[in-house]
Design a protein around this nucleic acid. Structure first.
Lengths: 215, 215
DNA sequence: CGATATACGCTACGACTCGTAGCGAAAGCT
DNA sequence: AGCTTTCGCTACGAGTCGTAGCGTATATCG
């Protein structure tokens, strides 16, 4: 799931092939410095000037590539979410528990905690930013739900869907429940997402799914 | 659930009874102005000077009462959450659907959307702020879960718990699932929490609960 | 009533960040 | 070579921050 062209760049005139190309190392250094500064300073105290200094680039270079703090942080965090995988653990319950714990581990990292919530908050009044978050972060992770369901259906643990529209709605519901519960547990309630919690949660979720499939 | 003493005030020396008391009207004006400014400007562009102007008070008055933007916004938003109620609709499913829709309506208001996420984001690096959020907002709403379960047990829809520790864990789990799913659906996925979704979600949740109770 | 104590409005201040403009130099492509 | 774009650097006005100082307003206490 790699974008062929870096999507963070603002309008580049015609994607011309002449002239000095942008430094890829600078890109990596900036995104890394952003995550680092986010951990130390938090969202509100994060300044682009500081990021530029840490990355070893000029402040103007930052403004040439990103429109502002929001866009920069979205790109800096989006990279982290691509780590999530869905290894086949043999059963639907084990798969769900595994991805829950993976997601929790990702949210336990300070840069993820801070950045994710801050950007979502900022996006409530900015439609363009919201769209960027959805395409860069949220929608990419829905693949985990679809993948897990397909595996479960192949194993016979879940019935195959007849109506594709219902199937899509159910997938969305599951995605919101899983992601929402884990985020709320770890960031709002500030309680650990350990193996015990993951087990209880999985039991609740799968119980609800099989119960619903029965009717 | 009204606190006898305003809890937002920073250290007041001995709560002495002499001298001019703080204006309660100013308090209300400031908190209202904060919510208003939050809607128009968003979190990052919200300035305390602007809030002071809108509220018709001096900027210094703001700094005398609140330590900073975070604390002010937490108090401004905490008031909104006290609206949530759990009217008795006759069945557990109806009660859950009702509170889900209420919560969604609260999150649909722009000031709530913006403020809640922003404050949570800021709190990831600030233990004092985290504690303030929990006591002012989160923990207060857990009453809804406890209340709903008690009613369901009285109706015979749910079995009574034997182990109080397990009961507490289950309540926490339900709280995180409900609040997390609704927040994620409306703020991250940006999809409406309508009657249909609330119905599907309730079926999933209650299905999981009865299934889990069976084993 | 006067004395005391606190809150309030107002102004001013240094420090900081913002986002942009302008320049010369560097680095690629034809 | 010549052209094009990026990069680092410096400087700038605008805006915000949080605080200090001062005079005034409003409460309780003796």
């Amino acid at each position: 799931m790699v974008t062929a062209m870096p999507d963070h760049t603002t309008d580049r005139p015609g994607r011309s092939r002449t002239g000095r190309p942008r430094s890829a190392e600078a890109d990596a250094a900036i995104l890394g410095a952003t995550r680092e500064a986010l951990v130390e300073l938090g969202w509100s105290k994060l300044t682009l000037g500081d990021v530029a200094t840490r990355a070893g680039v000029a402040k103007t270079t930052l403004y040439r590539r990103w429109a502002g703090k929001n866009e920069l942080v979205v790109d800096a965090v989006a990279e982290l979410f691509d780590e999530l995988e869905l290894p086949d653990r043999g059963s639907l319950a084990a798969d769900v528990e595994g991805v829950v714990l993976q997601f929790a581990a990702l949210l336990a990292r300070p840069e993820t905690r801070t950045a994710l919530m801050a950007v979502v908050a900022e996006s409530t009044g900015d439609e363009a930013l919201r769209a960027r978050i959805r395409s860069s972060i949220v929608d990419r992770q829905k693949r985990l739900v679809l993948q897990g369901r397909q595996r479960a259906q192949e194993r016979g643990e879940l019935p195959r869907e007849n109506d594709p529209e219902t199937a899509a709605r159910t997938a969305d519901l599951i995605f919101d429940v899983v992601a929402g519960a884990v985020v709320h547990r770890s960031l709002v309630s500030c309680e650990p997402v350990d193996a015990q919690w993951a087990h209880s949660f999985t039991a609740l979720l799968l119980g609800g799914l099989t119960e619903a499939a029965r009717t």
